[in-house]
Simulated assay, not measured.
Amino acid sequence: MYVAAYDYPPYFSTGLETDVTRELIQILNDYQDTYDFQLQVIPPNARYQALSKDGCCDVIFFESEEWGWKGKAVDATIPIIRGRERFIAKRIPGRTQAFFSSLDDKTVGAVKGYHYNFDGNERTADELGSSYRAYLSHSALTNLRMLMGGRIDIMPINDELLSALQNAGDQYEKDLLVSDQIFDDYMLSMIVGHNKRLTRETMQQLVRELARQGHIDKLLQRFNLSRFQVYRIGLRR
């Protein structure tokens, strides 16, 4: 059973020692022996092909249906996480929240294959260049280092990554100016391809069973993500 994963920290990143997806795969394999879940790393813009009928993978964890999946042959489980996205910049003397009021003359760091909703218009990273001065990389962590090094001026980041970095005692927090304004929020589920060895109903049942055993709560607590959790055993559908 192949789990597609692309760079989207804290859910998955080869730049991290561990992440939510790798931990959840281990929990699933320890919990049951019907399915052997294995990680398959893919580029972000390959995820639609990966879950297609002839694709390499069966499921992708912590993904929003709004990110290009409409019309695709997939099903989503119940939402598990409600995430949010906002801008950050490097903290320097005299820089205030007013810095985020306009993107004019600013280089925006984005990730290839991601979807963004800066101004109410959902668009891919590749489409940003038509409206903004954009620098595209393959990793949010790369962009974070570019931001701190002064190579880009501003970048979108999800609140979950900010929270996980804070939990890890990362020093980025004191060096970042974080926008007060959220420009996007989204629900993250498990998305399962049609005609696969795994069905949405089976994946959903596994999530429910892990929740009953307390595994989901403990996993999200470990990464400081509990405040984003929308699926708990008392709230299950």
Rank of each mutant, 00 (worst) to 15 (best):
N29T: 02
A50G: 00
Y48F: 06
D19I: 01
L128S: 07
N45K: 11
Q205S: 13
S13N: 13
S189D: 00
K90E: 06
A140S: 09
L147F: 03
A46Q: 13
N224L: 00
M203C: 05
K90N: 01
F87H: 03
G193Y: 01
L220R: 07
R222I: 03
R133C: 01
N224P: 02
S189G: 00
L188V: 02
I233T: 07
F37Y: 11
I60F: 15
D126G: 06
L103E: 02
R232T: 11
G234D: 15
D30W: 05
F37C: 06
G71E: 02
R232S: 09
S130P: 08
A98C: 10
D159K: 05
E66W: 10
E63D: 05
T96K: 10
D159P: 08
N29Y: 05
L161N: 10
D170H: 13
N158F: 01
A110Q: 07
Q205H: 12
W67D: 12
T77G: 12
E160G: 14
I60E: 15
A134S: 10
E85G: 12
R86C: 08
N195Q: 10
P9F: 03
E85A: 13
M1P: 00
K72Q: 07
Y8M: 15
V111T: 12
Q26G: 13
D153M: 02
E85I: 01
T202E: 11
F37I: 04
R86P: 04
Q40M: 14
K196A: 04
T34K: 12
L28C: 03
L165M: 08
D105K: 11
D180N: 15
A4M: 09
N29I: 00
M155R: 01
V108A: 01
R237I: 12
H138W: 13
N45M: 12
H138K: 14
Y31I: 08
M203H: 05
D54Q: 09
L161Q: 06
M203S: 07
R82P: 07
F12S: 00
A125Q: 06
D126K: 14
